[in-house]
Design a protein around this nucleic acid. Structure first.
Lengths: 337, 337
DNA sequence: CTGAAAGCGCTTACAG
DNA sequence: CTGAAAGCGCTTACAG
């Protein structure tokens, strides 16, 4: 073990200031109500002289609150996740909470492990991009009174506050834009919907509804929902139809990248041969050639809201009705559409 | 407060299994040396029946170890930071450590705040992308025996293990590539070097040395080191020289993006009008038009090494000599050079 | 206005 | 092979 210096504790401060530990504790917690001005001063000086810092671990044990929340993202590779994490962290910093970030890699088993760990660490609450496979676990956590907020994804039968994009609108805005540009052959590419991951399903639904609104018949060959590593093959099949789509909506940043790879390899010209819109305003959208039209999520506001809702629940108990907070997407027109 | 169910503690397990708390604790810590098979079994069953989970906070308090390390990044907006964090987290997960990630936003004051917080939370060690302005604080931490590893940046007068890119090589590889393509008018753009942030300084030095090796005279007008929001102006000045550079090395991902913005706005054709190489293998390098030649850092290995070195130091004490671990960059040739 | 005592949930010598 | 006791560094009723 490294030779740590003896830690300065509240006892040392108390002795130096000639008061009891209780009084020092009162001081630390700013309960000055009946504290003599002189006492206060002595404690203040003692703390400075010793360079004392309270041990939060000890405080947590006693108070049964760690002012820490766990954040579990489904897949940290999405820029969306990173931005949300950043917003959560900013907001938590405001409210004197800290976060432990975990990456479940879209793996329910890993997710469960992290939840157990975070519980053992006595986090006060959880913000989760949930996989769809730990329903019982979430129900148990709720029964035990753990404050939880879901983000990005809706899970049925789990009664928690959920922060969501208005996903159908996102698709609608994109389709509207394509139609405005005279397109009728419009496709969509999302990652797999087999697990009913709600944003994906909703984005496809929004796409279907929007087509209907515009009186455009649905063609199933124009709809790809596949694992990321299958996307190239599926795209190839779709683009080799004799009447391939002239416009494609990418369900998120990673599918957008897959499409761009394909486009580049096959020398497809955007937007002349193919119009493109991506959900999520990726960092390179502006500088890409051509710049890419996107539907942006208000990530900052969503992350902030998640933190606020959760911390409010931690502080005030979770007695209000649970609700789904829907955030409006925004079309950012650029050259690719 | 939310109505948490009464927590199951070691006491409950002990009672149900008809043994003492000590014995349960032994069991939990896998000290089975003299434990009867039957006792072991009873404890195991009691734990399962109660759904007991040890309280890590209590354990930390007693053991004076939190199996948590703090990670402070200078600026989380760099993809490099995100990748390093990911690698650290992976490695920590292997070794049963957890991380708390903090973003200092290149602000020494924020950095100090986070350090204080992490200390109060009793982290066992720190991995830091250091700003250059908290030298005394770091020295104090070292005196107190806090294990620390720096990453990306060297800070003089602070004796800690440091994980670094061989930055001069990175520039050398880029310049070599430019020269191979017959370029002589080669520029470099980095973020500001006023604080002597070591990778920036080293990359400029490497650039200078490489020019010298190739017998190319240095032209100070070809060297930009400026705050990000000044880069556009500086670029404009540089590109409006009567003999502007025909090749530019971007010091990191964010400066690369600035250059691409400029290029796009001014319809400069890459690589015909201007060759481009960026340090850091950004996510869009492959799909960009044209695809971008980069000098990649082995981020995964660097993050892993940081975690290993730190955790080794935590476990075995930090008695070995401190050293600087240099990692070799790798040129990934693509279309832009 | 301040202090003594109990307790948060663990671990760890030590005794038997 | 197992248990009683002390203690990690705090906080919090309660007493005075």
């Amino acid at each position: 073990m490294s030779h740590k210096m003896r830690t300065i504790t509240i006892k040392d401060v108390a002795e130096l200031a000639n008061v009891s530990k209780s009084t020092v504790s009162q001081y630390l917690n700013k309960r000055y109500d009946y504290m003599g001005e002189a006492t206060k001063q002595r404690i203040k000086e003692a703390i400075e002289e010793l360079g004392y810092q309270p041990n939060i671990v000890a405080r947590s044990l006693k108070q049964k609150s760690s002012t820490t929340i766990g954040v579990i993202v489904a897949n940290i590779l999405h820029e969306f996740s990173t931005q949300i994490i950043r917003a959560i962290e900013d907001q938590c910093h405001e409210l004197d909470f800290h976060i432990i970030v975990c990456n479940a890699d879209d793996n329910p088993y890993k997710e469960k492990n992290y939840i157990d760990m975070l519980r053992a660490k006595q986090v006060d609450g959880l913000i989760v991009f949930p996989t769809s496979d730990n329903v019982e676990l979430y129900q148990e956590l709720l029964r035990q009174g753990m404050p939880i907020v879901f983000i990005d994804r809706l899970v049925s039968n789990v009664d928690v506050n959920t922060i969501m994009l208005a996903n159908e609108d996102a698709s609608k805005f994109a389709v509207d834009e394509f139609v405005k540009k005279q397109h009728e052959r419009i496709g969509i590419v999302t990652t797999s919907t087999v697990n009913n991951v709600s944003p994906r399903v909703e984005r496809v639904n929004g796409y279907l509804k929007a087509l209907e609104t515009h009186g455009i018949p649905v063609r199933s060959e124009y709809i790809i929902s596949a694992e990321l590593d299958k996307v190239q093959d599926e795209l190839d099949q779709m683009m080799k139809l004799k009447d391939p789509p002239k416009a494609i909506l990418a369900g998120n940043d990673l599918t957008l990248i897959e499409i761009l790879k394909y486009v580049k390899e096959h020398n497809i010209s955007i937007p002349d041969d193919l119009s493109l819109i991506g959900v999520d305003d990726v960092s390179f959208a502006e500088i890409y050639n051509p710049s890419i039209t996107t539907v942006a999520q208000p990530t900052f506001r969503m992350g902030k809201q998640a933190a606020e809702v959760l911390i409010n629940q931690i502080k005030n108990g979770g007695d209000e009705e649970r609700q789904v907070f829907r955030f409006g997407p925004k079309l950012i027109p650029r050259q690719s559409s």
